[in-house]
């Protein structure tokens, strides 16, 4: 049977050996991390953003690289998923973007500070995290089961292909909605429909009424009232005009030749 001395040797020896291995691996990691994390891209803005991230304990609700609390969303890929314009508007007034939902502290950051935070998150999003966060393995299967009802009308004229005006980006629309194949990452499965064929479902006036105050038309909608936050009244009209202009049947003859509705 083991003596006390042998047990002591097992403890001290084992600890020394494994701590030694751990130290060697730590040194190796320390040397490799700068390459894996693109440390050359850590600008002063990224560092300033990191300080803001820490001094406000953002980790106390959010997770970053999967680390933090679990009260608010994981932010590693947030710049890629939502877009910088969306984030700028969101950070200025978080409650406005998610009315009646879980609250974020309203920080009075300057525009420069917001840019720093976004620069930091953008750098984080490009770090090689060994595959994290994984693509949801069941997402495709779920989408194959059918798109949410009322999201896409499958028949009707095929929308025109046109360049997307800047207002859709600055107005944060493409944070949730897909337009001409762009954006839509954040809204894919919460029922934010692609907007290319919205003319099939709504008239110009209905679109204006909807954007001006979504909750008035549909009280349980997840779409925030963006007028006064991300867009102006004039821009609402600009958006509505552009969306109905995608209808090939009412498009001006000078527009690109409208392809005929193709049978599916």
């Amino acid at each position: 049977m083991l003596t006390k001395l042998q047990a002591k040797v097992f403890f001290l020896g084992g600890t020394a050996v494994f701590f030694g291995i751990f130290l060697v691996l730590t040194i190796d990691t320390h040397l490799k991390v700068p390459f894996q994390t693109n440390a050359k891209d850590i600008t002063s803005a990224v560092i300033a953003g990191k300080r803001i991230w820490e001094s406000n304990n953002c980790m106390g609700c959010h997770t970053l690289f999967g680390e933090g609390a679990y009260y608010a969303p994981e932010l590693t890929k947030v710049v890629e998923n939502r877009g910088k314009d969306w984030l700028k508007v969101f950070i200025k007034n978080p409650a406005a973007m998610f009315p009646g939902q879980r609250k974020m502290v309203h920080y009075n950051f300057t525009d420069e500070q917001i840019d720093h935070v976004i620069a930091f998150l953008e750098w984080c999003g490009r770090v090689d995290l060994n595959g994290f966060p994984a693509e949801p393995p069941l997402r495709d299967a779920l989408q194959a089961m059918g798109t949410p009802t009322g999201v896409v009308a499958s028949n009707g004229p095929t929308p025109l292909q046109k360049p997307v005006p800047a207002v859709f980006t600055t107005g944060t629309c493409i944070g949730c909605h897909q337009i001409q194949g762009q954006g839509g990452a954040a809204g894919a499965l919460i029922g934010a429909p692609p907007l290319d064929d919205v003319f099939r479902r709504k008239t110009r006036d209905q679109i204006i009424e909807w954007i001006s105050d979504p909750a008035k038309v549909k009280p349980d909608t997840k779409m925030p009232k963006l007028v006064g936050i991300a867009i102006t009244d004039a821009q609402v009209i600009e958006i509505a005009d552009w969306l109905v202009s995608l209808n090939p049947e009412t498009a001006a003859p000078t527009a690109a030749p409208a392809p005929a509705a193709q049978p599916k």
Binding site: T15, F19, I21, E67, N130
Partner: peptide
Amino acid sequence: GLTFLSGILGTGHHYYYIGAP
């Protein structure tokens, strides 16, 4: 002894997805 044998290198489970090798 068993604690340190497993626990020291077990730190690695925090290093999977944070940008470490």
